[in-house]
């Protein structure tokens, strides 16, 4: 079981993560609609999540910019990042910024749940 924080601007997708990942026994400990709010909320948590699911395309601050800020706060040394996007061209930059896994849309929520179990273990 892993604790997960979801950063995605679409409520429908957030709900899908909650429902789908709970099937594998993972626990969603927080959600945010954009990167700025997410960093603020994560830094307030008593314990950092095991996994952060980060969508790339979001208003105000996109996934790559959020990653850069997370690096400054050293969040990546405490949590593993799953970077999710439909755009394969940002893969290299995301990898350089230290993401654990790069997930390209569309994906299977069931397979994602299993993948998180493997990463968490």
């Amino acid at each position: 079981m892993a604790t997960i924080f979801i950063i995605d601007d679409e409520e429908t997708i957030q709900f899908l993560y909650k429902e789908g990942l709970s099937l594998e026994g993972h626990k969603i400990i927080g959600t945010a609609h954009n990167g700025s709010k997410a960093i603020e909320d994560i830094n307030k948590l008593k314990k950092y999540p095991d996994i952060i699911i980060l969508d790339h395309r979001m208003p105000i601050k996109n996934g790559l910019d959020t990653l850069k800020e997370m690096k400054e706060y050293k969040i990546m040394s405490k949590s593993k990042i799953l970077f999710i996007t439909a755009d394969p061209t940002v893969r290299e930059e995301a990898s350089k910024l230290g993401v654990t896994s790069f997930i390209q849309k569309p994906f299977s929520i069931i397979k994602l749940g299993k993948m998180i179990t493997e990463i968490a273990n």
Partner: peptide, 29 residues
């Protein structure tokens, strides 16, 4: 590439969940 992929990801995910829960009779879900 973005809006439709997002929509497909959602629908695909919910159909997978329906498939998981279809025999549970949890009608609310």
């Amino acid at each position: 590439s973005h809006d439709f992929l997002n929509a497909n990801t959602s629908v695909h995910g919910y159909l997978e969940l329906l498939n998981q829960f279809v025999e549970t009779e949890n009608t609310e879900k």
